Amino acid sequence: MIVLRHPARAVRIADALRAAALSVFALPLTETELPGDVDAVLKGLTALARGEYRWLVVTSGNTVQALDAIGRAHTAGLAAAAGGTRVAAVGSATARLLEDAGVAVDLVPGDATSAGLLRAIGRGHERILLPQADLAPDDLRAGLTGLGWRVERIEAYRTVPYPAHPSRRVPGVVQDGVPPPLLVPVDVVGLATAGVQPAVVFTAPSTVQQFRERLAAGPLAFHPVAIGPTTAAALRGQGWEPGATATGPTPSAIRAAVLEAFGTEPVTLPSGRPVSGSTAPPAGPAPEPPPEPTSAPTSAPTSAPTSAPTSAPTSAPTSAPPIGDQP
C-alpha cells in the first residue's frame, strides 16, 4: 500500500500498517512553502501579541510550523505571540505541536473537523485570528462569521507540488522510527503494470489533484483511502468513491480504513499523458511482478512488494508535517 506523504512524515502510519502485515511505501506529492505575503503573517502575530484577538484558531500542524518559523525569523516564536490569547486546535496532533512550541491549548474539539470546532466554540462577537493554508476551504471562516465572530483569515503557508523550493520550504517535524521506502510516480505505474492494486492513503485534498495529474498515464487500479471527510469529498470530486474514510487522522484509524478498503472494488485511472517528471517511455515490456509478502492478510492484495524499487531515492527530508486532513 502507498501513503501519499514523504517517508519521514509517514513513520507512524507505516508502523500501524506494518503491524497488520502490510507492505508500506511512501509517495510524496505535495510540500509546504512560506506564504506569498509574509508581512501579513507578521502583522497578525504582532496583533496577537498585543492581545487584540479573543481566539487563535489553528487547524493543522503545518500552520503551527509556519507561524513559529516566520515569527522566529523576524522577532519571536509563536509562544511569545500567543501568550495571552485563548487557543483552539483542530485535532490532537495539532494540539501536541502547539504544546511542543510552548503554546497552551484551551480547546480541542472531540470532532476534529470544522463543524466540530464550530459546535465547541459557540457564539461570540470578538476577533478571531484564523491562519490557514492557501488551499483551505472557506467553511470555517464562514461558519465563525455566522456565529457572530469577527474573523481575520491570513495565509499561513502554501501547498505546492513536491518538492518545494529549498529557500521557501517550511521546516516541520520528522517522525522518529523507520520510514517506509520512497516511491516516485513512475514506480507506481510500473507496479500497476505488474498487476498490483494497492491501497492509496490520500492525506489531504491537494494530494488528490496531484495524484491525478502525475499518474494520468495509467491504467492504474487502486483502493482510495481518505484520511478524513474533506479529503473524501475531494476524491468524490474526481469521480473516485473512497474505499473507506478514516474515522480520525490517527494511525490506528487509518489502518482500519485501509483494511476496509481492500474489501471494496478498486478505482481505475484511465490512460492519459505520460507520468509527470518521468523520463521512462509510456509503454514497454511489463516488469517482473515484485515478490509477495510472506505475511500479508487475506484482505490485502498479495502482490504488494516487500522492498522499494531501485529507481526510488531513500533520503529523508529535513522537515515533515504531522498527520492531518490538511490542504
Rank of each mutant, 00 (worst) to 15 (best):
V258C: 11
V225R: 01
T46D: 15
L17P: 00
A93M: 08
P266N: 13
S60W: 01
G243K: 02
E99R: 15
P171V: 08
A234R: 02
L220Y: 00
H74R: 14
T145H: 05
A93H: 05
L4V: 14
T294S: 15
P137K: 06
A89T: 08
A204W: 00
G248Y: 03
L17G: 03
G146T: 09
L235S: 08
A101Y: 06
R168A: 15
T94Y: 06
I154R: 10
A80M: 06
G44P: 03
P321S: 14
I70Y: 02
V11E: 00
T302V: 11
P251L: 13
S271V: 14
P229I: 13
L259C: 11
R5K: 15
T231E: 04
A95I: 06
E152K: 11
A136G: 08
A246D: 04
A246F: 03
T159H: 06
V170Q: 02
R168V: 02
G228I: 07
V201Y: 01
E31R: 08
R50D: 15
L140M: 10
V196W: 02
V188E: 01
P7Y: 00
A308K: 03
A226I: 10
L34V: 11
W240L: 14
I154Y: 11
V87T: 13
V64E: 04
R50C: 10
Q209A: 15
G143D: 09
T75E: 14
P163C: 13
A101H: 13
G284V: 10
A253L: 10
P282D: 09
G195Y: 12
S278Q: 04
V105Q: 09
A104C: 09
L97I: 05
Y53N: 04
A20T: 05
